[in-house]
Design a protein around this nucleic acid. Structure first.
Lengths: 188, 188
DNA sequence: TTGATTTCTTGATTAAAATCAACCCTTTCT
DNA sequence: AGAAAGGGTTGATTTTAATCAAGAAATCAA
């Protein structure tokens, strides 16, 4: 069995052999080049990606043309705009490859077909919802130190994969503040 | 046709006569007394309420025993913890009546039965998701003025229904700051 | 109705993080 | 190689809203 698919399984829930086979049959596999878009603002997010290689950035552009990073994605992450996906509404975000990527793709229709075959696939809803939770933490009023600690603890790979100014934007703090937090963190 | 049900319909989506009838058959109707809980922290939110009379408060208690208001509900609102409801996970919030309430109740099983009968009921997912969006706005880094303007514009009834300290907690600002924002707002 | 809470307002002070500014260090592009 | 651009650090300054404090107003309860 190939490692990519078992990686995906380990991030998708508990499934029987038959369910695993159903899932495998619905998956597509694609490669994307750096800068390519997985989701474009204004379109409905109708598929989810499981990153097998590469990294991607989910962001929004505000009225002042400023880019705000909403989420950062690395290998073994599920990638989607949960809000757009569940409400079937045009997304306010874009998702763009930061490096060349390869990913499994699961369309919303595929997910519905799977659920029709086994209720076990409801688990996917929970997994995909976790991305939304994670994002919300950084929106909330935690201190810069708490936010940084949370990334170190829960998503250390991000720190290796993206420049600090991306991390700062993701944490909704200024790059200067992140630099100082890191200073305190490394030699307390 | 009774006004309560047409209120609910106007907040639920576009449905055919037959669909309206299906919906009506699945609805329950209950009354609750002041202080009574619609949802208790740690339990899964498995039904949604449509408030016909009264008001309710959704909140979380933090480590320091402080109560933080997550959402405020008035007549014609859908009431639920969207996160718990969609992920089928224990809720971190409680929802408590602030006055005596009456409400329609729709269980998650009822919603699944409805969807099985007509895809039109997928609309409910979108409607119920809007509560989650609304909440997120106040988590985000907007200025106290912007947050207050947003309530005045989108949810003016809250200002009549709850004390200012509740509104302040909902907006995630201090009561003093809210008082000053209001001062500026009323005589600019 | 009157005393006791609770809520609201207003001013003064403090604290936290953003912004501004200068400089250094890489990396990238001709 | 050299210029340019992007990213990171550090210090000084400014801004914003929280906190602290005191008093006024409103609500509740006996």
């Amino acid at each position: 069995m190939d490692t990519n698919f078992s990686d995906l399984l380990s991030r998708a829930g508990q499934f029987s052999e038959e369910e695993q086979q159903l899932l495998r049959e619905e998956l597509q596999f694609h490669t994307f080049t750096k800068e390519e878009y997985l989701l474009i603002e204004g379109t409905v997010c109708s598929k989810v990606y499981f990153l097998v290689k590469g990294s991607a950035v989910q962001y929004v552009i505000d009225e002042e043309e400023e880019r705000h990073i909403i989420d950062l994605h690395v290998v073994r992450d599920w990638v989607l705009d949960h809000q757009s996906f569940t409400a079937r509404q045009p997304s306010k975000h874009s998702i763009q490859c930061y490096e060349d990527c390869t990913a499994y793709i699961l369309s919303i229709e595929a997910i519905h077909r799977l659920i029709a075959k086994s209720q076990a696939f409801f688990q996917l809803g929970k997994i995909l919802g976790e991305t939304a939770n994670r994002i919300q933490f950084f929106d909330q009023k935690h201190s810069p130190d708490e936010k940084y600690r949370s990334v170190v603890k829960n998503r250390p790979a991000l720190l290796q994969s993206f420049p600090q100014k991306y991390i700062a934007s993701y944490l909704k703090i200024s790059p200067e503040t992140l630099s100082r937090v890191r200073g305190r963190f490394l030699n307390p």
